[in-house]
Amino acid sequence: MADNNNIGAKRLVVGAHYGLRDWLAQRLTAVVMAIYTVILLVCFLTASNFSYDGWAGLFSHQWFKLVTFVALMSLFFHAWIGVRDIWMDYVKPVGIRLFLQVATILWLVACAGYAAQILWRV
C-alpha cells in the first residue's frame, strides 16, 4: 500500500507544468491592459475633438503608438495563455490539440502584424 502513495517528493506530476508562471503572466498582462484603458479613458475624456482628426492626432504621437502596441501584445499573449489552456484541458486527441494550438498561434501573430500595420499607417 505504501508503494502506491503519490504524495510527497516522489509524486508523479503530469501536465504542462506551467502553473504559477502562466498565472503571473495573465495577471501582468491584465494590469498592462488596465493601465492602457485608464490612459485611453483620460485621453478620451480630456479631448475636445471627437472626430477622425482628433483620434488621428492622438495616434500620431510615437509614444501613443508604442503604448497601444504594448497593450495589444499584452492582449494577444493573455489570449494565447487562456486559449492554450482551453485546448489543453478540453481537447484530448494530441493531433487535433496541436493543430488548434498552431492555428491559434498563427491567428494571433497575424493579428499582431495587422495591428502594427494599422498603428504605423496613421
Rank of each mutant, 00 (worst) to 15 (best):
V94C: 07
Q117A: 12
S60E: 06
A56Y: 07
A9F: 05
L45D: 00
A25P: 04
R21F: 13
L41N: 01
N6P: 00
D22P: 01
F76D: 00
R27F: 14
M1D: 02
V32S: 07
Y36C: 00
I86L: 15
T37P: 01
R27D: 04
Q62D: 08
G95I: 05
F50T: 00
L100G: 03
H78E: 01
K10V: 01
A2G: 02
V42T: 09
R121Q: 07
I81W: 03
V83F: 15
V102C: 06
Q101G: 05
Q101S: 06
T104Y: 02
M1E: 11
D85F: 10
F99G: 00
D22F: 12
A79M: 14
L58C: 05
A112P: 08
Q117S: 10
I39F: 14
K92A: 05
Y90E: 07
F77G: 07
W23D: 07
F76Q: 01
W120M: 04
V83N: 08
S48E: 14
L100P: 02
G15E: 03
K92Y: 09
V14C: 08
T46Y: 06
A110H: 10
D53Y: 11
S60T: 03
A112D: 06
A116L: 13
L20M: 11
S74N: 05
D85M: 12
W23A: 10
F64T: 01
C111P: 03
A115Q: 04
F69M: 15
A34I: 07
M33C: 06
S74E: 02
L45T: 08
A79Q: 09
F76H: 06
C43V: 08
I96K: 15
F50Y: 15
R21K: 10
D22R: 05
Q117C: 14
N49C: 03
D22N: 10
G113H: 04
F99V: 06
R11P: 00
L41W: 13
D53I: 02
K92C: 07
F50N: 04
F76W: 09
Q62G: 01
V122A: 02
V94Q: 15
I96V: 14
K10D: 10
V83Q: 09
Q26C: 14
Q62Y: 09
T68K: 00
N49W: 01
A56L: 12
V70D: 05
L41S: 05
V109R: 00
W120I: 04
G113E: 03
Q62V: 10
L66T: 14
I81F: 05
Y114D: 09
A103F: 15
G54H: 04
G113L: 11
D89S: 13
M88S: 10
F59D: 00
T29E: 08
A9E: 12
Q101V: 10
T68V: 03
I39E: 10
H61L: 11
F77L: 13
R84P: 02
L119C: 04
V109C: 07
Y52D: 02
Y18S: 14
W80F: 15
L75M: 14
V38D: 05
I39N: 09
F76G: 02
V83L: 15
H78M: 11
A9K: 04
